[in-house]
């Protein structure tokens, strides 16, 4: 449906994309996640045909974005970052203009505009000038114009950038709803946004695709071992002997009133040892006030892959 194959892109001496490849299946909602300057926008600009790749290919529904660009663009809805619009036009006039650009005839145009206005909750402002709208409404107008021709593929570049928390929540629920019946690629540097909307996450950093999969797959593949946090009323030596720990396995610290804090790594063969550990402390008659398993999150994986830190939870 959407494919990008071994794409390289240079801006002068800067190697912005280094052999990025991925493919989205029909109906898949994927998030392109990466820190600023990672290559997200370049990837999107190549997929939308705004810029050509230096090597490699990209296509939308089998139409090459370079050699068959017009057909590829006809299948595509695109919301650029911060939804650029003509401030002097009214919402309806702008949607009318965009639908004419896509060559829709009068009847199709009327129903398409009505549908887009309804789906993007623009009924209240359809007669108002775009320049007089809030940023949240402008984003929605941009989104409405991107879905006017009912594209099979929707690409959104940082759709919640610059919005306030309420507007972000509204935009997210709108994007989620739109993703129910089409293939969608959303670029963002905000992890919770991607986690909430997308079933697949593509992590890019320094021009490379560092990870690709569902959140669970990313954690399984790239997450570090889980950690066990214990707080027990005993000395550190006693806690270590109960747990059978060597010094290198854990960090321990003595707290006030005789409590000890232990932070240890779980062994690969026993990902969740809480029940066994609880039994050990009970057998030694040592009170325990905390026994917590900390597993890697997508954020840990993202930080590890994007910034080269260890993926410790």
């Amino acid at each position: 449906m959407v494919a990008i194959d071994r794409v390289h892109k240079w801006y002068g001496r800067i190697h912005a994309l280094r052999g990025v490849s991925f493919e989205l299946r029909p109906g898949q909602v994927a998030g392109l996640l990466g820190p600023n300057g990672a290559g997200k926008s370049t990837t999107i600009r190549i997929l939308t045909g705004l810029i050509p790749p230096d090597t490699g290919r990209a296509n939308i529904r089998g139409h090459d974005t370079l050699s068959d660009s017009l057909r590829a663009r006809a299948k595509l809805g695109y919301l650029p970052e911060s939804a650029p619009l003509y401030p002097e036009m009214s919402v309806r006039a702008y949607l009318e203009y965009r639908s004419r650009l896509f060559g829709m005839d009068r009847t199709v145009r009327r129903s398409a505009i009505g549908r887009a206005i309804e789906r993007c909750w623009l009924k209240d402002v359809e007669g108002r000038r775009v320049g007089h709208l809030s940023k949240g409404y402008r984003q929605r107008v941009g989104l409405a114009s991107a879905i006017l021709h009912d594209p099979e593929v929707l690409i959104l570049d940082e759709p919640t950038n610059g919005l306030d928390p309420t507007q972000i929540a509204q935009m997210r629920s709108l994007v989620r709803e739109l993703g129910s019946d089409r293939t969608m690629l959303i670029s963002s540097h905000i992890l919770p946004e991607i986690e909430q909307i997308c079933s697949r996450i593509l992590i890019v950093a320094a021009g490379e695709l560092r990870a690709d999969g569902s959140p669970a797959e990313l954690i399984a593949r790239h997450g570090g071992p889980a950690r066990l946090i214990v707080e027990a009323r005993c000395t550190t030596e006693k806690a270590e002997s109960i747990l059978g720990l060597r010094e290198s396995d854990a960090s321990t610290s003595e707290l006030t009133n005789g409590w000890t804090h232990i932070d240890s790594r779980c062994a690969a063969h026993e990902p969740d040892p809480r029940e066994r550990i609880a039994a050990l402390f009970a057998a030694a008659h040592v009170p325990v006030r905390e026994l917590r398993l900390v597993t890697s999150t997508v954020e840990d994986v993202f930080l590890a892959l994007a910034h080269g830190r260890g993926a410790t939870p």
Binding site: T48, L50, L70, R71, P80, S82, P84, R98, L101
Partner: peptide, 14 residues
């Protein structure tokens, strides 16, 4: 300047 060229250049127009 305003970026409105992007929706134009990604529309199916020569």
């Amino acid at each position: 300047r305003t970026g409105t060229i992007e929706p134009l250049l990604t529309s199916p127009i020569r």
